[in-house]
Amino acid sequence: MRYQRHRGGLIGLVVVVALAAVAILAPTIAPYDPLALGDVALSAPSRDHPMGTDHLGRDILSSVVWGLRVSLVVGVGSALISVVVGILIGAPAGYFRSRLDGLLMRATDAFMVLPTFFLILLVASVFGTSIGKLIALIGITNWPPIARLVRAEFLSLREREFTLAARTIGVGHLMIMLRHILPNALPVVIPTLSLRTAGAIITEASLSFLGVGDPNVVSLGQMLMYALQFMRMAWWTAAFPGLAIFVVVLALNLVGDALNDALNPRFRET
């Protein structure tokens, strides 16, 4: 069973690396300019257009390759922000406990029940969107679970002998948190990074699907928004962009699960 799980993680990792390579090399890999209007609209998959063309005759394969790039940038960027904010909130809460802890956790709970997707929709509609804004918005609305995780780790690690030892020889609080506790808490944080990237990719795609993504870039969600109108005539407009999101999210989830298994033996199933 463990072999199978790790095999899943391995497959996931290979897929993630491959897709990341595709995203990075998008300019050279994409056969066409994703925004260039073609001659034939909604043409079925063929040798010239392996995934067909959309309603404006644009090559879907090229759009998928470029869209993947946007998905990964938004996913990784906002996951990093969530993790950093989660650590900034969770670490002092768990380390200092007392009143600060109560205060920070209250705030975390408040953010936890907030329907963040609606909040992002609202802010994005009112203030307009760009890739940068999307990364920031998704990042700063998804830290609460990470903060809780980090807090729990800090709570337990602060009681350990090495923390006590550091304190005895006069190491300052900040140094203890950064140099001694944080590195030991990373095994809990790292799998989250992968899972959060997956979640953020779905959020970005959902926003673009509803028409509040960045209108200036090719995005997989936006392609599906148009597909909703045209898939009656052209199934490929709906099938391929969604498949791309599904595969990248599945791979990231596999990696996250496998990392959890490998790094956190305590969480391993009996």
Binding site: A198, I202, A205, S206, F209, G221, L224, A227, L228, M231, W235, A238, A239, G242, L243, I245, F246, V249, L250, N253
Partner: peptide, 13 residues
């Protein structure tokens, strides 16, 4: 891992 909206589109298809 399945995006909700994609699942919907596929089911309709």
């Amino acid at each position: 891992s399945m995006p909700t909206f994609w699942l919907g589109l596929i089911l309709i298809l």
